[in-house]
């Protein structure tokens, strides 16, 4: 079973690589923001899989922290300061 799970992780990592390439090929900031979101979700998925494969419970905490702070990061990037551009 572990082999199958690991194969899925490998495919997820491949998707990660491709979405990174897409992100780099885009020039607009918002498109990149989107790619960051995709990478974040993929990262969480990979962490969850690795937690099961490697039997490391601590990775679940890491995933929780990643998810929570992703919101903070997006908020910081998209908020606009008073009296000026973004």
């Amino acid at each position: 079973m572990n082999t199958v799970l690991l194969a899925v992780v490998v495919v997820l990592a491949l998707v990660l690589l491709i979405s990174l390439l897409i992100m780099l090929s885009r020039t607009r900031l918002t498109d990149r923001l989107l790619a960051v979101q995709l990478l974040g979700t993929l990262g969480v998925a990979i962490l969850l899989m690795l937690a099961v494969v490697m039997q490391q419970r601590a990775f679940l905490d890491t995933a929780l922290v990643l998810v929570l702070l992703a919101v903070v990061v997006t908020a910081v990037f998209t908020h606009r300061q008073r009296g000026g551009k973004s």
């Binding site: 923001l33 969480v44 929780l64 992703a70 919101v71 997006t74 998209t78």
Partner: peptide
């Protein structure tokens, strides 16, 4: 728990990006 939070996070992220 991770999944629920991820749902909330992605709804918020989507909204923030949409506004932006």
């Amino acid at each position: 728990l991770v999944w629920l939070l991820a749902l909330v996070a992605s709804a918020v992220n989507a909204h923030l990006i949409a506004v932006f």
